[in-house]
Simulated scan of single mutants.
Amino acid sequence: MSIRGRAGAVAERGRRLLESDVPREDLPWYVAPLPEPLENLGLNLAWLVVAVNLAGTAFGFYYYRFQFTRTPVEMWAFVPDSPMATLLVALALAAWKLDRPQEWLTALAFFGNIILGGWTVWVHLAFYEEFGYLWEPMRQFLIWSHAAMVLQAFLLHRIGNFRPQAVGVATLWYGVNATVDYFIPVRGELHHTIIPLRRDAPVFLGADALGVAGAGAVLLLLASVYLAMLTHVEKRRARRSANTLGD
């Protein structure tokens, strides 16, 4: 094959990666902010996305190794927040690829990646100076990799409908998670990810460090509930509109 022919074949493969047979409803940007070609790329490379998230999960469990040692075993499920979120999105995509999609799993993955991805970016910005002890490449990796978690959450509307029952499961889990992280530890101390200053250290707007961290988690939980239910409503509206046009 000539160089021109090889280039054409590569271009064709690239074009196919940006296309998909997976249906995409006509949704407003605020529930589907990713460009359709980028969504298609993520779906076509779903197993790669699964592998990357599993690698992130493994790194995350290693990152939390010291916090595990100071947490009662029965509360370990509430410690590795971000690794659990990346594990959930890996499982949700894997289940979909195996033709066994689970609405509750997709909803959990959506909530987890928005809440924990967004929370990590939030605390790194709110406590930017205090996180200065980190090696700068590691700090940037943590910020941008967690920002990517938020983005990948918006791929999931292509494989799930966010039915109220599934949203209820995710709301319950992450509501309990926020409770034991910031308000009622049940066993031991509060189980939120360790922050680089005392919980009662004054920060800004009259809030202490724990208040700032907890506020971020609660607001992101509320945003996740709203976005999930809004996505469900918009998907139903889009289908009704498509059916009306079809008639």
Rank of each mutant, 00 (worst) to 15 (best):
M229T: 01
A85H: 01
A126Q: 04
P23T: 10
A178C: 05
G117T: 03
G188K: 05
W135P: 04
F162E: 02
G246I: 03
V50A: 08
F78I: 00
G60Q: 03
G246D: 13
G168K: 06
I184T: 08
G8Y: 00
L210E: 09
G56K: 04
Q140V: 06
A7W: 09
L105V: 13
D21A: 12
A238Y: 07
A178Y: 02
R70T: 07
Q102E: 12
Y182I: 03
G118Y: 02
R237P: 09
D181S: 11
W144N: 07
S145F: 10
S241W: 02
E129W: 06
A147M: 13
L205S: 10
G175P: 04
L220W: 01
A207M: 15
W76V: 01
L45H: 10
G118V: 10
I159H: 05
S82I: 10
L87T: 07
R4C: 03
A7K: 13
A215Y: 03
M149Y: 06
T193S: 05
R16M: 09
G160Q: 04
V31E: 11
E12V: 04
L93C: 10
L87W: 09
L27Y: 03
F61A: 04
V10L: 15
S145N: 13
N113L: 06
P28V: 12
R70Y: 00
E130A: 15
E36Y: 11
L197W: 03
W104M: 09
A58I: 14
V10K: 10
R239A: 07
W173L: 04
D247S: 08
A201I: 06
L87D: 01
P23S: 10
L219A: 15
Y133D: 01
S82W: 01
L43T: 06
F183P: 00
Y133V: 04
L222R: 04
D81G: 07
A223Y: 08
V176P: 00
L45V: 08
F141M: 15
